[in-house]
Amino acid sequence: MLLNWKTGGLLLGLVFFAAVLLVKPIGVSTQFVILDGIVADAITPELITKTDEGYTSTNAYLAKSNGKYAKAASNPLNYSFIFVAAMILGGLLSSRLRGGVEKGEREISALWRANFGDSKVKRYAAAFAGGFIVLYGARLAGGCTSGHMMSGMMQTSLSGYIFALGAFGAAIPVSLLMFKKGV
């Protein structure tokens, strides 16, 4: 069902290459900010405003780099946002073709279950908290596993190496401490 690492690695490399050949390097985590911006601007329309030069925002983060995030949030039909939406469809398509994720596994994955039991609340709370830390960290770093590590190291950018050092430097000890029982 899963591809072996040689085929999978080659295909994944081709996708990253196709992106930089045709458009630009792959990145994902910015789109969490863009979706936040879209929602927040719908609730408080004064958040993002159009100016003579482009877009700006009362939020300093959305307004940075000449309002590029403010602009993207005002125009959701842009490459990067549609790209992430298409990734969800890719997951749906791939899962349908392989018969879907099994019932119990959909809520709690096997390794979590072996170490922390059958509580869905516990698993969902951990996923929520993990998501919070991951996206806060990704925005502080200016990118995530896709943008910083994969696209960054592929382009030999210094920041990609610094990011990977931090990410694995924390992820490996935390995982070793948390997941002691194997599956």
């Binding site: 792959i26 994902v28 985590s29 969490f32 992430v84 990734m87 969800i88 469809l89 890719g90 997951g91 749906l92 398509l93 791939s94 899962s95 879907g100 994720v101 959909r106 994955s109 390794l111 979590w112 951990a126 996923a127 908290a129 993990g130 998501g131 919070f132 830390i133 991951v134 996206l135 806060y136 960290g137 990704a138 925005r139 502080l140 770093a141 200016g142 995530c144 596993t145 896709s146 910083h148 920041s159 610094i162 990011f163 990977a164 050092l165 931090g166 990410a167 694995f168 430097g169 924390a170 992820a171 490996i172 935390v174 995982s175 948390m178």
Partner: peptide, 29 residues
């Protein structure tokens, strides 16, 4: 970048997802 990497790594280990894989995983059900 390094501090953010440490945070991301921590959450990645806890949840087993990073931003890209989480949206695809949501699509898989």
């Amino acid at each position: 970048v390094f501090i953010g990497g440490l945070l991301l790594g921590t959450g990645w280990a806890v949840a087993g997802y990073c931003p890209g894989t989480s949206v695809v995983a949501a699509g898989t059900g």
